[in-house]
């Protein structure tokens, strides 16, 4: 069903954007289809495919963006825009020509079988890897090839599949590290202030401490306010990382398998936390294996397989896409599923 939708999309990205600039720049972010010639043909089959109208809406918001994402003026309404991104490791192309556009206030999930390139994509999107080709825009900054910390400074917070906790300090200090770039005062002033512990620093530290404590409460770690980081259980470490990422005051949060290794109730709590964050206007990119969580919180899902984009759309659509089922379960199961649907 989405197969026919794909080619027109591909065409749309090449289609003369500049030909109708007035139409192009504004309609993009706002509800895709409206009055936009080139993307309308792509829309109906998809919109039709997803039964739930409330699901169709975010898809409409995110989808048109993913087609052209827009160099320059385009990304105004996309917070993160990834264009034709590839990353090769020797002969292996781990991520192959993947594009993604994330609009503010949505949850965009990236799923796929093991080895599909999800983590590579995530590492590309935060600067741990540099892309072999393609570009990454955060707001209107081109960050292709920028170092990891530069992404963070421009408002991209992330968590890791295996929590990267600083075990040599307290839990609260871990979160305070996240406030680093809001505390920074340049090389010499910062050093002088730190060495002499000037009153300005003391005041800033007090503020930092309070804000970090507040964030620990937000993620539900108030119990561990006085604990050393290495005394926290695994589930709490996952939350601690989220608190640290939030301390950046990020525009966008990349969550790499936030529910991995958690039991059911812990995963539900993470789901609720993500829901709360989105309610507060946070934008989230989520890589996750827990399908229940993904289907529950996502506005749009990008499915990767062998480094390529296999499908993209609202959860309902992705769930029923035979190619997705096939990638996950194999051809046979996919056929079973198809016949089951037919019956």
């Amino acid at each position: 069903m989405s197969a026919p939708a794909r080619p027109p999309e591909g065409g749309a990205s090449q289609s003369p954007e500049r030909a109708q600039p007035a139409n192009r720049t504004h309609p993009l972010p706002q509800e895709g289809g409206r009055g936009d010639g080139s993307s309308t043909p792509a829309r109906p089959p998809e919109g039709g495919a997803s039964q739930s109208p409330e699901r169709a809406q975010p898809a409409n918001r995110t989808h048109p963006l993913s087609q052209e994402g827009g160099r320059g003026e385009g990304p105004r309404m996309t917070i993160l825009s990834v264009q034709n991104l590839s990353r090769r490791f020797g002969g292996l192309t781990a991520v192959d020509d993947v594009s993604l556009a994330v609009s503010p206030g949505t949850v965009h999930a990236v799923i796929g079988p093991n080895g599909a390139g999800k983590t590579t994509l995530l590492n590309l999107m935060c600067g741990i890897y540099t892309p072999s080709s393609g570009s990454i825009w955060l707001d209107d900054h081109d960050l292709s090839g920028a170092p990891h910390y530069a992404f963070a400074r421009l408002g991209l917070g992330r968590t890791f599949q295996t929590p990267q906790i600083f075990n040599n300090m307290s839990a609260l200090e871990n979160v305070m590290v996240g406030r680093y770039m809001h505390e920074q005062r340049g090389l010499f002033l910062g050093l002088a202030e730190a060495l002499l512990r000037l009153p300005t620093l003391r005041a800033a530290e007090r503020r930092s401490r309070e804000e970090a404590a507040e964030l620990m409460r937000v993620v539900g770690l108030e119990r561990y306010l006085d604990a050393e980081a290495d005394a926290l259980p695994y589930g709490a470490l996952k939350r601690l990382e989220i608190a640290r990422a939030l301390a950046l005051k990020p525009k966008l949060l990349l969550l790499d398998e936030p529910a991995a290794g958690l039991n059911h109730s812990e995963a539900v709590e993470i789901e609720q936390l993500i829901g709360q964050l989105v309610e507060r206007g946070m934008t989230v990119v989520l890589v996750e294996h827990n399908m229940r969580l993904v289907m529950e919180v996502s506005d749009a899902i990008l499915v990767l397989d062998h480094g390529r984009r296999l499908a993209e759309g609202p959860p309902q659509m992705v769930r029923e896409d035979p190619r997705v089922i096939e990638a996950y379960l194999g051809k046979e199961a996919a056929e079973d599923a198809r016949s089951a649907v037919a019956v």
Binding site: C126, G127, I128, P147, H148, Y149, A152, R153, G157, R158, F160, Q164, I165, F166, N167, N168, M169, E173, M176, V177, G178, R179, Y180, M181, E183, Q184, G190, L191, E193, A194, L195, L196, R197, L201, A204, E205, S208, R244, A245, A247, L248
Partner: peptide, 29 residues
């Protein structure tokens, strides 16, 4: 002691413990 208990000191301790984690917090290791 002042240095260690300052944003800069936390940054140093952070990059000791996990350099990638420190960078994710915007720290230029």
């Amino acid at each position: 002691q002042n240095l260690i208990d300052s944003p800069m000191g936390r940054a140093l301790r952070a990059l000791h413990s996990s350099e990638v984690g420190a960078q994710a917090a915007g720290i230029n290791a």
